[in-house]
Design a protein around this nucleic acid. Sequence first.
DNA 1: CCATGGATTGTTAGCGCTCACAATGACGTC
DNA 2: GACGTCATTGTGAGCGCTAACAATCCATGG
Lengths: 354, 354
Amino acid sequence: MTQAQLRPPTMADVARLAGVSHQTVSRVLGDHPNVRDETRAKVLRAIDEMGYRRNFSARALATRRTRTLGVVASNTTLYGPASTLFALEEAARAEGYLVSTVSLRRLTVETLSEALDRLSEGGVEGVIAIAPQRSAVEALAELRHPFPVVAVGTGSGAEVPSVNVDQQLGARLATGHLLAAGHRRVWHLAGPEDWQEAADRTAGWRATLDEAGVEPPLPLRGDWSPLSGYRAGQELAGWVGRGLTAVFVANDQMALGVLRALREAGVRTPQDVAVVGFDDIPESEFFAPPLTTVRQDFSTVGERSIALLLDLMEGRTPTGTARIAIEPQLVVRASTFPYGPQPPYALQPEGAPD
Amino acid sequence: MTQAQLRPPTMADVARLAGVSHQTVSRVLGDHPNVRDETRAKVLRAIDEMGYRRNFSARALATRRTRTLGVVASNTTLYGPASTLFALEEAARAEGYLVSTVSLRRLTVETLSEALDRLSEGGVEGVIAIAPQRSAVEALAELRHPFPVVAVGTGSGAEVPSVNVDQQLGARLATGHLLAAGHRRVWHLAGPEDWQEAADRTAGWRATLDEAGVEPPLPLRGDWSPLSGYRAGQELAGWVGRGLTAVFVANDQMALGVLRALREAGVRTPQDVAVVGFDDIPESEFFAPPLTTVRQDFSTVGERSIALLLDLMEGRTPTGTARIAIEPQLVVRASTFPYGPQPPYALQPEGAPD
DNA sequence: CCATGGATTGTTAGCGCTCACAATGACGTC
DNA sequence: GACGTCATTGTGAGCGCTAACAATCCATGG
C-alpha cells in the first residue's frame, strides 16, 4: 500500500509493471492459449500486486456485451414470484450472466414501460418479465424494446415468448383428486380476476367438473391473501350441510384463511370439508390440518426461462412461437385425507419425486 | 422501418439526421439548459425516428459511473431476507441506481468472495450484503474489495458498516410481554447457531429473564423451518404441567410448527401455553391461533442501507463507525391472549402504528 | 545455412460516449 | 462602431478495453 492511487490501476499500468504490452495482460485475463507460462506468471504477479480488476464498462464497450440480463418482478413476497426470482438469478449466473432486477408494486403499461427503459439504459441484453397480471401481458406485447423479452407466468395465450407452469393441469389434478375421493361437487375460491394464472386455475377446475358432468358452483374470489381466504371461508362455512364438502382454493395462503374460518365455524377439515390449495409454500405442511396442494417447480421455470431468453438473444429461436409449459404435481396431505394416521403421513420426507 | 440496421444507431447517427453535432444530442439527453428549443425539438424528433437509446457502456466508461449497486443475498424465500431484497431495490431505484443481485445457497468465505468478485466485474459501485450468518460477517471483514460494502442483518458487532433491526430489543419485547401477562418463566426455541440474529434474540430473551430474577431454561434449537419447530414443539409438549406455560420462538415459521405440535399433543394455545413468534409474516395472523409476534420494518432497513451505502460511496461517512439500528415492534394476537373475543381482535386492521 | 511456419508478443484502431474548451452569433454598452 | 458578454453550438481528446493485424522469435528441415 505504498502508492495511494486516486484512480484504480488500468491494464496499461499492469502491463508496465510486468514489462509487457497491455494486450498481453488482456490475453492472460482472457485465458488465451498462446502466452508463455513465464509471461503469464509475471503478469499475474503484477495484477495481484496492484490489486488490478478489469474495468467493466471499457470491456463492455469494446465487446458490445454487458453479460447482464434484466428481470422485472412484482414487489411481493408471494412464494411463487420470489422463488422464481431466485431461480432465475441462479440459472443466469450459471450461464455467466449477471441479473439486474426491477420490482414493481403495480404492473401497468406505464410502470412496465418505465422498468424496461430503465433496464435498457442499464445495458441489459435481454429481459425476463415475471408478469402474472393480464394487464402486464398486454403491455408487454405492445411495448417496443431493443432486446428480447421472455414472459413468465403470463399463460400461454399471450403474443410473447413465455414459460409457464401448466396451471390448468394443476387445477385438474386438484379437482380430480377431490372427485376421486368421492366428493360430488367441488367449490372454488379463485384468485384475483386480472391474474392469468388465477383464470387458468379456474378454467382447469371448471373443465374437470364439466367433464365429470357436474355443474360448477359459482366461484368465490379472493386476492391471494390469507385475509381474503378467511372472508371467503366464512361464506363457504354457510354452505356446509347444503352440499359443500370440498373446496379447491387457488393458493395456499388463501387456503390458510379458509381453514381458519372453517375451524371457527365449527366445520372440521377434512371430515366435513376437504380443502386443496395451490403452490406448496413451505408452511403448508404445517397448517391445521396439513394442506393438500399443487407444487410448482420454480427452479425448472428459472432454468427454462433463461435458456429460452439466451436462445432468443442468439437468434436460435424465432420470437414468434416460443411457448414452454412445465408440469406441476399434486402433493396429498391431511386436508383431503380423513383416514390414515396423520402425523407420520403429513410429515412425509421432502423426497417427493421431481 | 426502412433501414434495417445491424448496429443500433449511435449518437453520431442521430446528430447527422438532426443536422447538429453529437455533443448537442448529448446535451439534449442530459437536459442541459443551453439548448435552443427549436434545436432540442429537432434532436428529439431524430431520436424518436431512429429509436435511438444511449449506449450504457460508452456512457459508463466516459463518466466512470455505472450507477449500479450490488446485493448479495441468500437464496431463500424466508420472509425477512426476501422483503429486505425488494426494499433495497426500491430504495436504490429511488436514488437512480440499478441493482444487480447474486443469491447464494451457502454463505462462506469462498462463495461470498466469488459473489463480490462477480459483482465487481459487473461494475457495481457498492454492495449491500444481506448476511445474517456469522460466517458471512467474518468473511466480509477480511475480504478486500474496491467498493464499499454495507452488511444487513449481521448484528452490530461486526467490523463492517451495518444496518440491523434491533433483535435484542425485539426479544425483550416478546419475553417481557409474556412475563407481564403473568407467566413465571419463558421457554425459548432458538434459531440456528450460526445466525447472528438468532443469537441476539436468544441474548435478549436471556437478559430479560435474568433481570426478572428468573432462571432461563435451556433453550431448544431449530433451523427456522416449520418442521424443526414441530419437532421442538413435541419436546416442549412434554414439559407442559412441569412449569412450561410460555414459549418465545425465534421466528414465525418455527412457531407454526410448535403450534401444530402442541395442538396434536392436546395442549391448548394460549390457555395452556402461550406462544410468541418473530417476523410477523403475512400468514401469522391466520395461524391457529393467530400468532403474537415481533414485526420488523424491512422497508426502513432497505432505505437506511442504501442511504448508508451512498454515504460511504461519496465518502461522506467514514467506513469505520457506521452502525444503524432499527426498532422492531410487538404485535399482540391471540396466541398470548386468552381473554378477549378472538376473531375481531385477531383481525385487527393492518393500521398498527409505524 | 537459410527458408518456413507456428508460437508469442506488440501496435494500432476503434467501441460510443462525455468533458473541457474553442468557436460562433446576437445583443447591448460606452 | 469597437468591444464585452452571454447563449448556443462545435471540436478534439480521452475513458480502458478488445480485435485485427503486424512483428518478432525460435525450431525445424531441405
